[in-house]
């Protein structure tokens, strides 16, 4: 039996990069948070959804060879830490690239891709990955 609701709950956040902005200090967070780690109780009820643009810069990256089973067709694949223009740093794959196209500091943007499948009969899980800006 596969998973379902745990994925569905986050699908909007993953499909459209919906994070939260603290109404108290204006810091933008992705992934979304219910409480601001800076403002604590002053942020309760003030965390508003905000859509991030998905553009940012590579902080660091790796090429993953030892992969969990579901990434077998993409091995080896690029994982990166991306600092988004709005502030938060997130973790994601960089796709459609060769090793010489990726480097610390390069600009990237999000694309909508398949991340995983719950086997042959389960649901398909989509989410964000990155491509290098040409």
């Amino acid at each position: 039996m596969g998973e379902l609701s745990r994925f569905w709950r986050e699908s909007e956040h993953r499909y459209r990069l919906i994070g939260t902005k603290c109404g108290n200090c204006s810091v933008t967070y992705f992934p979304p948070r219910d409480i601001c780690p800076k403002c604590h109780r002053e942020s309760i009820g003030k965390m508003k959804p905000v859509q991030l643009q998905g553009k940012g810069e590579i902080i660091s990256y790796t090429i993953v060879h030892d992969a969990p089973p579901r990434f077998i067709r993409q091995r080896p694949y690029f994982m990166a830490l991306i600092k988004l223009d709005e502030g938060p740093t997130i973790t994601g794959q960089i796709v459609d690239c060769d090793a010489d196209e990726v480097d610390i500091g390069k600009r990237v943007r999000t694309v909508f891709r398949k991340v995983a499948e719950e086997g042959k009969s389960g649901i398909i899980e989509y989410g964000y990955k990155f491509v290098v800006d040409q």
């Binding site: 660091s60 973790t91 994601g92 794959q93 991340v115 990955k129």
Partner: peptide, 12 residues
């Protein structure tokens, strides 16, 4: 979920 493994994060 997005593909990171403990080794990938150490590598970055």
């Amino acid at each position: 979920f997005l593909g990171a493994t403990p080794a990938a994060l150490a590598a970055m």
